[in-house]
Simulated scan of single mutants.
Amino acid sequence: MAQNRGTIVVLNDTAAIAHYGCKVVMKRIVDEVAAAGFEVKTVSVYSTWRVHQKLIDQAAAVIVNGEGTLHHSAQRAQTLVAVAPYCAARGIPVFLINSVWQDNSADMARQAEDFLLRFVRESRSEKQFAAAGLKAKTVPDLTLGWNYRAAKPAPQRSGRVYTDAVGMPATDLLYRLFREDAGSRYVTMTPPGGHRGDYSDYDFERLPAPFDKTFPLTLRLRLRQIMKRTLLIRGKTKNAIRRMKGHLEMVPLEGFMAALESSELVVTGRFHGVCLCLLTGTPFLALTSNSHKVEGMLEDAGLAHRIVRPADVRAVLAHPPEWSEDDAKKAKAFVQKARRGQKAMFASVLSMAKTESS
């Protein structure tokens, strides 16, 4: 590793979420930043940068992992974007990467002016930034730059795999479709308890909440997180029952990737489920999600015909569209484009970070 060039703080560490796509995203960020010689400290998606201002004030840079957070002026989105003017006022380089940007307020756009660079995952988001008078560059999702290598050659593809979705109605629908589809598999993107083999091999620190004057804010966030998990108990209970019945597979990351590579068709309601299908060249159908992220990415890839509304999925599955040679070429080309863009993105961001000697 190169000599220590200082600390970069990464906000919105979504690897705290039990979801493989988010974990691969954070692996990619930590890998790139640490390999460049920076110490990496992250702030969990369940925390806030406001309780770590002392560290941020001394940082070489702040990177905001936007992921699927910055849409519809949600409270968490507003809080994340507010770090940009905070850093700008103190001369701290601050960057937005890997983000959606959809239907946000004029006030959020004004705060986003202070990001030195803005990188979004699909061109719909780039156009919304442009409509607000701000420049952004489209670089597809970080999962597509993962240097994934299968442990062994994939078998010939057969059968269908269903995954979960954003929201219980769509997840329940996918489960029902799996139950109607003899010989198919239902594989969740939630890892088994305690599994974290998808993290970076580099050392990094997810910042604990400080016990100082900001602790009441941390306590409120913890209570909100507990309440949210309580509201999700119905979904967790359903999954536990489905797993006990042998209907739901919860496997390590390598098992999930193997399931994709052996499937003749994956039906997913997860954005990152689509990304990992693109990465492995797996035929898929993608349900629409809670923002334009799926539609935007697949439009950019020339694969918008693989999108299906939940109301239409059963009819489409009766006569699924062929995964053509052209589809396969477009998927491969899109992954290659993502990797080129990500290499340039990280080079730009890390070259603009301060160093300890500056």
Results as ranks from 00 to 15, higher is better:
Arg309Tyr: 13
Arg234Asp: 08
Val187Thr: 05
Ala318Gly: 11
Glu126Arg: 12
Pro216Leu: 08
Ala344Leu: 15
Gly133Ser: 05
Lys228Met: 14
Gln75Leu: 15
Gln156Thr: 06
Asp327Ser: 03
Ile63Ala: 02
Ala259Thr: 00
Asn239Val: 07
Ala165Tyr: 03
Ala331Lys: 01
Thr171Val: 10
Pro93Trp: 01
Ala109Trp: 01
Glu249Arg: 07
Gly197Tyr: 05
Asp201Phe: 12
Leu232His: 14
Arg196Trp: 07
Cys22Ala: 08
Glu322Trp: 08
Thr79Asp: 13
Arg220Thr: 09
Leu116His: 04
Pro252Ala: 03
Val187Ser: 04
Leu207Lys: 10
Arg306Ile: 05
Thr14Pro: 11
Phe346Asp: 01
Phe215Trp: 14
Gly193Glu: 12
Leu219Gln: 09
Ile63Val: 09
Ile63Gly: 04
Lys337Phe: 11
Glu299Val: 13
Leu221Ala: 08
Gln75Thr: 14
Ala88Leu: 04
Gln156Ala: 14
Trp323Gly: 09
Asn65Thr: 00
Val251Arg: 14
Ala311Leu: 02
Asp107Tyr: 10
Leu265Ser: 01
Val40Cys: 06
Asp181Glu: 05
Ser44Val: 11
Asn147Ala: 15
Ala16Ser: 14
Gly194Arg: 09
Arg340Ile: 15
Ala36Leu: 07
Trp101Cys: 06
Asn239Trp: 10
Val120Tyr: 01
Glu325Ser: 11
Ser158Val: 13
Gly194Ile: 07
Val308Ser: 06
Lys293Thr: 07
Pro210Phe: 06
Phe129Met: 04
Ala60Ser: 12
Glu126Gly: 08
Cys275Trp: 00
Glu67Pro: 05
Arg160Asn: 11
Gly6Pro: 02
Phe119Leu: 02
Val266Cys: 08
Gly197Val: 04
Arg242Gly: 11
Lys54Met: 09
Arg179Ile: 02
Lys354Gln: 12
Lys135Phe: 13
Glu32Gln: 15
Thr7Leu: 15
Ala131Leu: 07
Arg196Pro: 09
Ser357Pro: 06
Gly273Leu: 01
Pro208Ile: 07
Leu232Arg: 14
Thr282Ile: 00
Met189Asn: 10
Tyr20Arg: 09
Met250Thr: 10
Ala240Phe: 03
Ala304Arg: 10
Val43Tyr: 02
Leu173Gly: 08
Leu248Asp: 03
Arg160Asp: 13
Leu265Arg: 08
His319Asp: 15
Glu39Gln: 09
Ala331Gly: 03
Arg339Trp: 02
Asp203Phe: 05
Phe256Glu: 05
Ile307Gln: 03
Leu70Pro: 00
Ala315Arg: 13
Ala347Pro: 00
Thr79Met: 06
Ala130Gly: 09
Arg206Ala: 15
Ile92Gly: 07
Val83Met: 10
Ala170Cys: 14
Ser262Leu: 06
